Simulated scan of single mutants.
Amino acid sequence: MHSEAGINSTTDPELRKAFHEAVKMFKSQRERLTVFLRLEGVPLPPLSESKPISDPNAVPPGVKLTDDEFANSLNIKMFLGITMCATAINESVRNDVGLIWVEFLQEYMTFGATMKTLVKKRGWLKVPPFYYPPGAPIQ
Rank of each mutant, 00 (worst) to 15 (best):
F70R: 08
F70K: 05
F70D: 07
F70Q: 09
A71G: 13
A71Q: 10
N72C: 06
N72R: 14
L74K: 01
L74P: 05
L74F: 01
N75L: 09
N75Q: 11
I76R: 15
K77I: 11
M78D: 07
F79M: 07
F79L: 10
G81E: 04
G81Y: 06
G81Q: 10
I82R: 07
T83I: 08
T83R: 12
T83K: 14
M84K: 06
M84H: 02
M84V: 02
C85T: 04
C85V: 04
A86R: 09
A86S: 12
A86Y: 02
T87V: 12
A88E: 05
A88T: 00
A88M: 09
A88S: 04
N90M: 03
N90V: 00
N90F: 01
N90H: 03
E91P: 02
E91H: 01
S92M: 04
S92D: 05
V93E: 03
V93Y: 02
R94K: 09
R94G: 04
N95V: 06
D96I: 06
D96E: 08
V97K: 15
V97G: 06
V97N: 12
G98F: 03
G98E: 06
G98T: 02
G98W: 10
L99F: 02
L99T: 06
I100Q: 12
W101H: 14
V102T: 15
V102A: 11
V102E: 11
V102W: 00
V102S: 15
E103C: 10
E103L: 13
F104A: 15
L105T: 05
L105D: 04
L105R: 11
Q106F: 15
Q106G: 13
E107N: 14
E107M: 14
Y108C: 07
M109F: 07
M109D: 13
M109P: 15
M109T: 15
M109N: 08
T110R: 11
T110L: 06
G112D: 15
G112C: 14
A113C: 09
M115A: 03
M115C: 05
M115T: 03
K116V: 04
K116M: 09
T117R: 10
L118N: 07
L118H: 15
V119C: 02
K120L: 05
K120M: 02
K121I: 00
K121M: 01
G123K: 04
G123N: 03
W124F: 12
W124C: 00
L125H: 10
